[in-house]
Write a protein that binds this DNA or RNA. Structure first.
Length: 417
RNA sequence: GCGUCGGUGGCGGAGUGGUCAAUCGCACGUGGCUGUAAACCACGCGACUUCGGUCUACGGAGGUUCGAAUCCUCCCCGGCGCACCA
């Protein structure tokens, strides 16, 4: 199967500036821009980064462009003006993102650039004369987000954000001239910005450059994927632990399985189809979720860690009660699952379950913890706790650990040292 | 600069002197049913609490009042109109 066909069948093509078959006729140098608005990628970015890897595997050259310069401006969004990030934060984020990319793509050669290198040196007057002339305001104001911001009282758009598209277009022009970059990809929400670059190259350099986008990955509710309740799913293991990361994928609803396997794994299409078929027949086995969680975890955190969290999950949610597992299995669970450490002194001083729930992150506040207990959502060692004043004591522990569950899918291990 | 409208919980959006921690919808959480799924139903959703309450809270700071998210003054932020500029 050729690349174009493969990508189409995986649902990775949304818009394209030319038929993808045409685009892939020759080896390209493809670029993906990432704005340093955070110090870690999250799973939304991961989808596109993996798409880059697919292109690399097919023989195309990669450029990752971290937007140290565009990040200083901010891509217009629906809501209203962004708060400008300060330079220190930008620099830190930029460094963090590049490190992450290197970790994520071992063995894949790519070039890493920061558009601050040219954007911050840009002279305003030359820019307006040479680049600004090639954009019309008439066009810009027609763009969805800009039009909405212009039309909506309370959400006007600053000239700064209005100009963002020019900078992104200019990036592509620079990359085209300096690095022979002739393909840009991104998520579909970037389409118009991406197209600005294609047009700019045509007008300014008289060359044909290409672009295509993949659909923005959404969950079943149509929201950006992995951003429920402001808790983005990060690739940075310190922001989202590998265990929680694995759990996230394991909890993907059935309807999403096929889509996510196609986008987030390198499993051949035939195998995905077979897997989805088995999932449909025996849904309670959750084979699809397990494969997805296992494979994406391996991509993000490495084989070893993926194995560990899979084992930890089996230990904590599998058919064998935790207490009856072998020492090693419990030890793995203890290192991977969320845990909270106690000393004997803590216990003699008195430590309430409510405090433990808050400290362990199962509850956002004491009131929340209280609510959880009242609604019978907390179990300790398999018993539902109904006593709001429950004190954790020696007796709560079994062989120096105790397993607390919140609902069916969250756990916290209490460890006595 | 002048005028005018507005700034309420994660979001949308009510309330316009006491009964307001604030109707409602969405999102989210727990329980029930299940498969750590979806749908559905129930409850919950500021913080603290000796569970009776207490304390903060409606852009910020003052004030009027027995009492203010609600009225007044000043300030900050945003929209719109006009003026200035061109």
């Amino acid at each position: 199967m050729n690349l174009a066909e493969e990508l189409k069948r995986r649902g990775l093509i949304e818009q394209s500036s030319a038929p993808v078959e045409v685009i892939f006729k020759e080896p390209r140098t493809v670029y993906l821009g990432i704005d340093p608005t955070a110090d870690s990628l999250q799973i939304g970015n991961l989808a596109v980064v993996l798409l880059m890897k697919r292109l690399a595997l097919a023989g195309h050259k990669l450029i990752f462009l971290v937007g140290g310069g565009t990040g200083m401006i901010g891509d217009p969004r629906e809501k209203g003006e962004r708060v400008l990030l300060d330079e220190k934060t930008l620099a830190r984020n930029t460094r963090a993102l590049s490190k992450q990319l290197y970790k994520l793509l071992p063995g894949t050669p790519f070039r890493m650039l920061d558009n601050a290198a040219w954007l911050t040196r840009l002279g305003l007057v030359p820019f307006l004369r040479e680049i600004g002339k090639l954009f019309t305001v008439n066009d810009l104001v027609k763009r969805d987000i800009i039009a909405r911001r212009l039309a909506t009282p309370d959400e006007s758009i600053s000239f700064t954000e209005f100009s963002y598209a020019l900078l992104q277009g200019y990036d592509y022009l620079v990359l085209n001239e300096k690095y022979k970059c002739d393909l840009q990809i991104g998520a579909s929400d970037q389409w118009t910005n991406i197209l600005s670059g294609v047009e700019l190259i045509r007008k300014r350099a008289g060359r044909e450059a290409y672009a295509f986008t993949m659909p923005l990955i959404t969950d079943s509710m149509g929201k950006k994927f992995g951003k429920s309740e402001g808790n983005a799913v990060w690739l940075d293991p310190l922001k989202t632990t590998p265990f929680v990361f694995y759990q996230f994928w394991l909890n993907v609803p059935d309807e999403g399985i096929e889509k996510y396997l196609k986008v987030y794994t390198f499993l051949p299409l035939a195998e995905i189809e077979a897997l989805v078929e088995r999932q449909r027949k025996v849904p309670n086995e959750r084979e699809g979720q397990k494969a997805l969680a296992r494979l994406v975890s391996a991509l993000a955190h490495g084989e070893t860690t993926a194995n560990h969290v899979a084992l930890a999950t089996e230990a904590l949610f599998g058919p064998t009660p935790f207490e009856e597992l072998s020492r090693e299995k419990r030890a793995i669970a203890l290192t991977e699952a969320p845990s909270l450490k106690f000393t004997k002194a803590d216990l003699t001083k008195g430590y309430s379950l409510i405090d433990a729930l808050v400290a362990g992150g199962l509850a956002s506040s004491k009131s929340d913890a209280r609510r959880l207990i009242e609604s019978r959502g907390i179990t300790l060692g398999g018993t539902i706790i109904t006593d709001l004043n429950y004190q954790i004591g020696q007796g709560s522990f079994n062989d120096s650990y105790a397993l607390v569950r919140k609902g069916r899918r969250e756990v916290l291990l209490l460890v006595l040292k």
